[in-house]
Design a protein around this nucleic acid. Structure first.
Lengths: 113, 113
DNA sequence: CAAATATACATAGATATACGATGCATTTAG
DNA sequence: CTAAATGCATCGTATATCTATGTATATTTG
């Protein structure tokens, strides 16, 4: 597991990308997908996920549709057009940030490799 | 400028790497080095930097030495042995984290490039 | 069949970390 | 002479995540 702080600012981007890739997903499914794709290195807690989803919904990035599975309710989330635009912007920002960090960490003397 | 949250968890790692690369540095010098190396994309504020430096000092990652420049005081920070070990651990964690995020963002269908 | 685990949603409070605003003081540039 | 840059520092605020807790159903294991 990574330091908690490292994940900050990336959770929304992760969710947007998963939904783009897989179409609509429900909360628990998102936690499992992140766990699998990160081989257990990133575990999204319910206390992080649901507030994040609710905020994204309030911001118009996601839409919801509910389904009854037996007696349980599943809340599916899907990207809105605004969410798709946000996805592109956040991916650009994230990869740019990674590159910038790399350039800061790279010592000046290390010209090769 | 990036979202504030993206920087969280990386500031200490950035400082450790700069000190490793350049030897002892003082606060203002660090803000300028980050600004230059990031071509203005990351601006470390005094309100972020000094508390971070003080915490690293309290954690034994840094040592200090003061110098009088005219009537002004400069506080130089340098890596301790503990700081050097922390640097290695944090670099490993950070790059591993970046790789993990990349693998999460990469769609399953996108096998090539 | 009972118990443990997994599935599924949700919220309240704690924590960590960076930022904005502000303050003080010296030095350099226009 | 004035503005900007240099140089340190702290206080309050904002934000996002986690822990702990709560409720409930479904499935697996012993």
């Amino acid at each position: 597991m990574y330091s908690k702080e490292l994940l900050k600012g990336t959770l929304t981007t992760i969710i947007l990308n998963l939904l783009k890739d897989r179409g609509r997903m429900y909360g628990y499914e998102i936690t499992q997908a992140v766990k699998e794709k990160s081989t257990g290195k990133i575990l999204i807690r319910e206390g992080s996920l649901y507030p994040a989803l609710h905020k994204m919904l309030a911001d118009g990035l996601l839409s919801t549709s509910e389904e009854n599975i037996g007696k349980r309710i599943r809340v599916y989330y899907d990207l809105t057009e605004k969410g798709k635009a946000e996805l592109i912007a956040r991916n650009d920002e994230l990869f740019s940030f990674f590159d910038t960090i790399r350039s800061i960490l790279m010592p000046e003397s290390k010209i090769f490799g």
